[in-house]
């Protein structure tokens, strides 16, 4: 497309990759007049994505279902894993979670000592569980955990190493999430049955706090657990992972290194929960208990 909005097309069908199609576009562009290529002015205002909180942190979260080999080794699904079906996003999905400066600071003891263990604040733990452990690969934004989905959970940080430069901590815990769901046919959405979406998982990772930079510079965390409930198998529609044969589901959390360095016009959009689900209710994103209180008020008496 030109900066003036003229669509330049290149044929992809029957080609091996995008390169030939992009060359067609470039060739078509080169044939345009200067006036057609470069309008005198481009109308409109730049409206960059919102910046993450000052002094905070952006975690990138990947999720994907897993399979298991005959020896029990976890692997990317193959063969009859996942009942022989595959998700609509075979490479997994990608999401994010914003943390405030205060949430980051609260993770690090003022006087850290090896072996020290402290609880992650209840609010941050719930944000990680409810907003971070959304199996986007399985739910394709049609499902989410409910405000009361945390049935059990703990999340701690334990200091492992302390030096003048850094504090290395282990982040570890577990969670049980459940929510009611319904299985429908696809794409005509005929009701099949009610079921429960359930994720029973352990969390394990490493957080490094750089004392000279006064910021968290590493947050590598893996989450693994059994998922049962509904999941979307692309054109094969919605499927059910049963409690008797749950699906192994993994998440990987890491720091988005670019979140605070990209120029505004290249910023990554906020998560679906943050930008859409809580579009008019920003406070719920930062405090799941407020979301829960509001939800309770809305329940039928």
């Amino acid at each position: 497309m030109t900066s003036g909005g003229k669509l330049l097309t290149g044929r992809v069908k029957g080609r091996d990759g995008l390169a030939a199609a992009l060359q067609e576009v470039l060739d078509a562009y080169a044939k345009l007049s200067e006036e057609a290529r470069r309008p005198k002015a481009v109308e409109g205002d730049i409206k960059p994505q919102l910046p993450p909180p000052d002094g905070g942190l952006v975690l990138t979260i990947y999720d994907r279902p897993l399979g298991r080999s005959s020896t029990g080794q976890y692997r990317h699904p193959e063969g009859e894993d996942c009942g022989g079906f595959r998700t609509h996003a075979p490479h997994g999905q990608r999401c994010s979670l914003w943390l405030t400066k205060e949430e980051c600071e609260a993770l690090v003891p003022a006087t850290p000592a090896k072996g020290q263990t402290r609880k992650v604040s209840a609010t941050l733990a719930k944000r990680i569980w409810l907003y971070g452990l959304m199996p986007q690969t399985l739910w394709v934004v049609e499902e989410m955990w409910k405000p009361d989905s945390v049935k059990a959970g703990e999340l701690d940080v334990t200091v492992e190493e302390v030096s003048a430069q850094s504090v290395r901590m282990r982040v570890h815990g577990s969670v049980l999430l459940t929510s009611p769901g319904a299985l429908h046919t696809w794409p005509d959405r005929k009701f099949i049955k009610n079921l429960e979406n359930r994720y029973d998982a352990r969390l394990e990772g490493v957080i490094v706090y750089d004392r000279t930079k006064a910021k968290i510079t590493r947050w590598d965390m893996a989450v693994l657990g059994d998922y049962s409930g509904r999941w979307f198998a692309g054109n094969n529609g919605w499927k059910e992972a049963t409690a008797e044969s749950p699906m192994p589901l993994g998440f990987a959390f890491e720091i988005d290194e670019t979140a605070y360095t990209l120029p505004p016009e290249r910023r990554r959009p906020r998560s679906f929960m943050h930008a859409y689900t809580f579009k008019e209710r920003e406070a719920f994103y930062w405090d799941p208990d407020k979301w829960l209180d509001d939800w309770k008020k809305r329940q039928p008496k």
Partner: peptide, 26 residues
Amino acid sequence: MFALVRPQPTEWRHLQVQWITDVVAA
């Protein structure tokens, strides 16, 4: 587990491009 869930070298390759996320800016 962390490495297994993260994208493999052949996955999400389009993120190697620094995209402009505002159409007017682009």
